[in-house]
Each structure stands twice: as structure tokens, then as C-alpha cells.
Computed example of a mutant assay.
Amino acid sequence: MTTFEITPDSPWLAPLAGYSDLPFRLLCRSHGAGVTCSEMVSVKGLSFKNSGTRRLLNTCPDDEPVVIQIFGAEPQYFPETMEKLVSMGFRNFDLNCGCAVRKVMKSGSGVALMRDVGLLVRIAGIMVEKAAQHPDGGRVGVKFRLGPEYGDETYLDLAPRLEDIGVNWVTMHPRYGKQLFRGDADWNKLRKLKDTVSIPVIASGDLYTARDGVRCIEETGVDGVMFARGAMFDPTIFDRFRALRAGREMPPLDGTLLAEVVRQHIKFTKDYEGDGRSFRKIRSIIPRYAKGLEGIRALRGRLNQCASWEDLETAASEIETMKKADRISTPVDDNCL
């Protein structure tokens, strides 16, 4: 597995529950994503050999560099699971301490882990120790929020302790756990975090467009940006970000380009998964790409009637002739971003 450099010009795809599977990672990589993250993987699920959990680890040679994001709150499960992942060839890992979904927090995982900084640091330390056993050396990051409750500035205590134990980078979504996705992400806290640690800081939160990403780097001085909801609506956001940073023009996000993106996603899904479950999943995702185009409701109806991969490709071709309306990225609050 390939390692990577963290730079402002190499945008990341965030770990998106239900979205950042292998086909979507390959799609985003083909449009300029420098680093991609897996969906978050349960340490306990891996320990008990859950088949659904193992599916999240599907990969291929073109899926590099990839970061495997894991979550859990019981340290006894981490050593064996990390050893298993390293033996499978994975060398880049991330600990999820930012998911605010209730079922994750009920287990003490996600942002709930920030309530016990000592436990969090202990778990991250196990990950650092085990990742180092990779023959080429492993790396570990931690993704977190400002704190679990409104007003908790837990990140200021947490980040230096993570740096001290050898964590290689940190990613912060500058909202509180209780805040979910309400209000605005506080980018000023990203600058404060950057001033607190010397390891790379990656920004997440309210990066809906490529321009948002460029502005975040300019305003906060972070070392990189991680696109989540922006990529879900526009997988070309990575190319657009790189073009803006380099002062280049990008083609308009019209029906022609979106139809090509959809065809690519269908192909990656068919080639690397190709089962009924993946068929139904991609069928439900396609309308997201056509958001802001006229005729989206009729397209959604036709997609629901598709019964084969060929039907999907035919329906996707209709996007090419759809006229562009005002395109608005709508926040999604059911994913761990």
C-alpha cells in the first residue's frame, strides 16, 4: 500500500458512511482526489469476522493511497484488529472520533470517545504501535470535532497529546458533537489547531465547493482539505480544486460532464462489485449527481424502473441533454463526515 505526502494541493475524499466504497473512491481518484478514505469500519465487527464489515475493506491496486478509518471504544479489540489489517497490506489508518450518529455514540465511539481523552489517546497509541509493524512503516491519523458538547474545546488538549504519542496527522471538523451539522463550521478553530501542533492538520466541514476548499486553506493555513458532502454531489470537485489552486479553468458542470461521471460510476460499480446490492445502491445515488438539472424527478422515476446495468447506462445518458438549473449543494446529515 502506497504512502502519501500531505500538501495543500492534494485534496482528500472523506470517510463517508454508505458512500466512500471502492467504486466511489476510484471515481473520485479519477477526478483528482489525492488520498481517499474508506467508510468507517467497526473494530469489533472485524474482530468477530462480520462479513458486512469485511466488505468495507474491498480494494484493488488502483485504490492507493487509501486510508482505512476504524472506530470503536474498547481498547482490547484494537491490537488484534490492527495486526490483521497490517497483515492484509494496509498501512494508512485513521481513528474516527468525530461521528455524531446516535448508534455510534451509544457504544462510546465516534465523538463520544472525546469524553475520555485518556482512553482515546490510549487507543490511538495502540494503532500507532501496530501500524509501525508494517514492513514499509505505517501511519495513523485521528479525525475529531471541537468537543462532544457545546463549548467543549477538547481538541486543544487532545491534539498535542496525539502528537506526543506519534500520530502522524489530525483532521478536524470544527463543530461540536451536539451540533451535528447545524450552524456553520468554525474555521477559526482550524487556525487555532494549526498553531497548537506541528503535525499536519487537515480541514473538514462546510467544504461544499472547490472554491470553499481554496478559501479554507487561505484563511486557516491548514495543510490540506477533505471533501465530504461536496464530493457526494460533484465528484469532479477535486479536479476543480486543483485547477483553482493552479489558476486554470475547468469545464462547466453541465449535463454532458455529469453524464460522463455517472457512466464512470456505473462502470466502476459493475466491474468491482456488480451484485444486486451494489446495483440498487448506485441506482439510488445517480439522482444526486443530477441535482440542479431540470427533469430530475422524471429521471428518478425511470431509474427506479431500471432492472439491468444496461438500463442504468441508458437512463444515465439522458442526463446529457438535461438543462442546468441553479445547482445547490444540500447538506446531508445522516453520514459520518
Rank of each mutant, 00 (worst) to 15 (best):
S51C: 03
A100C: 05
M40S: 04
L193N: 04
F4G: 08
R145L: 01
R242G: 02
F268L: 05
F93E: 00
G276E: 11
N58D: 14
D311H: 14
L156F: 02
N50P: 04
V111N: 02
R327I: 15
Q264E: 15
G301I: 09
L190Q: 03
A100Y: 11
Y289I: 09
T3D: 15
P331N: 09
L193T: 03
A132P: 03
E153C: 00
K291W: 09
L258M: 15
N50E: 05
G89T: 04
M250P: 00
C306T: 14
D136G: 15
A73M: 07
L113Q: 00
V86P: 11
R283M: 10
L158I: 02
R91N: 04
V117P: 01
T154C: 00
K281Y: 03
C60F: 05
V262T: 14
G141Y: 10
S204Q: 06
I286Q: 12
A316T: 12
V332P: 01
G247N: 10
E83H: 11
P174A: 11
F93V: 01
D186Y: 09
A131T: 03
A17F: 12
V86K: 11
A259I: 10
A112E: 03
R25Q: 03
S10I: 01
V261F: 05
P61G: 08
T7V: 12
T36S: 13
R161V: 00
L244Q: 14
D206V: 06
V262F: 09
I328C: 07
S278P: 04
V43C: 13
K49A: 13
K267H: 13
R277Y: 05
F279W: 06
A315K: 12
W309C: 13
